[in-house]
Structures are given as C-alpha cells and as structure tokens.
C-alpha cells in the first residue's frame, strides 16, 4: 500500500470523479486526457492505454469481432476495479471507456487514462486497471474468421497478469 486511508476523503473532494463509460461509439483519447487534466495543475503524469482490434488471433485471420456485455454489471465491475486502483495509488483521476458491438481490425476497443502527480502511480494504476478489466469485467468477444464465427476463449496469461497484483 502506497497510500494511507487518511488521504481518501481529501482526494474525494479535490480529485475528479471515478468515471466509467461503456458505449458503442468510438472515443478520442486526446480529448479525454484534455478533459481530465484541464484545470488541475497538481497533475504531473498522465498514463494512457488503448486496446485495438487485431487482424489475426490464435493463428486465424479476424475480419471483425462483436463485443457483448452485461449492461449494469459491466459498469459496476469497472467502477469497482477503478476504485481498487484509487485505494492503492495516489491518483487524481481515472477514466475507463470500453466499447461494445461490432468492431473491425484497427478499431479502438478500450481506453484507460490515469492522472497522478508522478509517473509511477499513473503507470501502475493504468496497468492494474487493464489487468483486472481483462479478468473481471463481463465482456465477451465473438470473432468473424475465414472458418466462421467463434467465441474467444479466456487466456491463462490474463489470469496470471491479474494474480501478480495480489502478491505485491
């Protein structure tokens, strides 16, 4: 733990709101970063991650994928993950935007932006949020391949990535 509980109420007042959006529409990470950082001169670091659709997966071409989610639970799960990250690191603001529906190679799927005073917290919290999003947020991908439609299987490497945060 790098942050004491004592500071939580202060952050809740001074920092931005935890924000999560699940949407069909595309997003503009630059615009989101600008909105988060505007007016907060205590921010010294902004880490961002954008996940995109690959044209191949598991040895097969992918012409498109459809992302399904669980409206309500998906937002709650993402909010819980962001809240855990904010408990763990000093973070001014964190935003997760995740898309659903049909997406094609090159399309953006997900973005995470974390703003903090120094880079260490921003990098760590951003990676933490993505690792847990992969294993705990209810989304499912169905790919269109030359062999037909197929649901993507969960990866063991994703479980390992989330597990490692539990021992540090």
């Amino acid at each position: 733990m790098t942050k004491s509980l004592f500071f939580r109420p202060l952050l809740a007042v001074d920092g931005g709101a935890v924000t999560v959006r699940v949407q069909q529409d595309n997003f503009d990470v630059g615009r989101e970063i600008a909105a988060i950082t505007r007016g907060n001169l205590a921010i010294g670091a902004v880490a961002s991650f954008v996940g995109t659709v690959r044209a191949s997966n598991d040895g097969s071409g992918v012409s498109a994928m459809t992302l399904e989610h669980y409206p309500g639970m998906t937002e709650r799960a993402l909010e819980a993950i962001v809240a855990q990250a904010r408990d763990r690191w000093d973070v001014f603001d964190a935003l997760v935007v995740h898309r659903y529906g049909r997406l094609e190679p090159g399309d953006q799927i997900v973005m995470v932006v974390v703003a903090s005073a120094h880079r260490g917290e921003a990098f760590a919290a951003c990676e933490f949020i993505m690792d847990f999003l992969k294993t705990e947020a209810p989304f499912w991908k169905k790919e269109e391949t030359p062999q037909g439609l197929r649901w993507v299987d969960a990866r063991e490497t994703d479980n390992c990535a989330a597990e490692r945060w539990k021992t540090t």
Partner: peptide, 10 residues
C-alpha cells in the same frame, strides 16, 4: 442470477 463463460474483454 447470471451465468456466463470466463470474460474476454479489453
């Protein structure tokens, strides 16, 4: 109550 396969978002 919801049932579903392991998640594959991100």
């Amino acid at each position: 109550v919801a049932f579903f396969p392991p998640v594959t978002g991100g």
